[in-house]
């Protein structure tokens, strides 16, 4: 299955019952795929149809895994290109990227094997554009300079890892009762370990405060963090559990990571997908 077809299906609420609007959504993705359009669209504000994903998708482990594979393809290629770019300083940055790259490659292989083992054809690897139509130059291919390129490499890595954590979390419900749930949780936690280290490499806390994207993050990445300010957990406002600093807005938002809907995850990933 092609990536466009998959993303189409993933965000199409009629997936399980009909195909009437597929052409329409395919058209929207086609427009999104044009570089000019991409450059003008901030992260997460892509013109994807707004759907209440969780309710519409029902329990669909395969779609959840295909989304996971799409995000892993993206991360895997990003870290490969980052390591080849010559932009990364040696020492901690290179060591960290190498370790993460190893894991993302393993996740791609693992998810492909899992899908094939279940008799499902994995989505094909998309063609990515990490410059987002020339907006970024993380690999210093267009001469933006090593320092700026490196800052963009770190910012994109943070956005991808924090997105990955939220996206896997958002799919947990779709994997409930599926044999893939535990593996997805095992990957989910590794993405969080990556996110923490990348954030700390950028001199941020390893955890997300309120919905702050953090110093130095492009405004376009705000969609990755919107919703992280939630303090109501299981119907309880955790800021009301006590008066100490442990129940401040800051601590209460840091202590819980929030999920990202499939639609929102697709919208973010789509910005980097050409075809």
């Amino acid at each position: 299955m092609s990536i466009i077809k998959f993303l189409d299906e993933f965000t199409n609420q009629s997936m399980l019952t009909g195909r009437s609007s597929r052409r329409e959504i395919f058209g929207a993705l086609g427009i999104l795929g044009k570089k000019a359009a991409l450059a003008a669209v901030p992260l997460g504000l892509a013109t994807m149809p707004q759907k209440t994903f969780a309710q519409d998708m029902g329990n669909d482990p395969v779609a959840a895994l295909q989304l996971a594979l799409t995000l892993e393809y993206l991360e895997d290629e990003f870290y490969d290109l980052a390591l080849q770019s010559g932009v990364l300083p040696s020492g901690r940055p290179e060591t960290v990227y190498m370790q993460i790259s190893k894991h993302e490659q393993a996740h791609v292989d693992f998810l492909i094997a899992g899908l094939e083992g279940a008799g499902v054809t994995p989505v094909e690897k998309p063609t990515f554009d990490f410059t987002v139509g020339g907006t970024f130059d993380p690999f210093n291919e267009n001469g933006i300079g090593q320092e700026t390129a490196y800052a963009q490499l770190l910012a994109l890595a943070q956005a991808f890892e924090d997105t990955g954590v939220r996206a896997y979390k958002g799919q947990a419900g779709n994997l409930l009762g599926s044999p893939f749930l535990t593996a997805a949780l095992q990957i989910h936690a590794v993405e969080a370990m990556h996110a923490s280290e990348i954030r700390r490499l950028r001199s941020l806390k390893g955890w997300i405060t309120n919905k702050e994207r953090g110093e130095g993050m492009p405004e376009a990445t705000q969609a990755v963090y919107n919703g992280e300010e939630n303090v109501v957990q299981g119907g309880l406002d955790v800021t009301t559990l006590g008066n100490s600093a442990a129940f401040s807005m800051e601590a209460s938002t840091e202590a819980y990571d929030e999920p990202l809907s499939g639609d929102d995850a697709v919208a973010i990933a789509s910005l980097f997908i050409v075809s």
């Binding site: 979390k169 936690a189 990571d257």
Partner: peptide
Amino acid sequence: GKLITDPGYLLLAGKIVSVEARHAS
């Protein structure tokens, strides 16, 4: 995770485990 039957509790566990993983890292 696999022992949980309620999607709400599963999501809660997911919200917390990734923070524990950030801590571990």
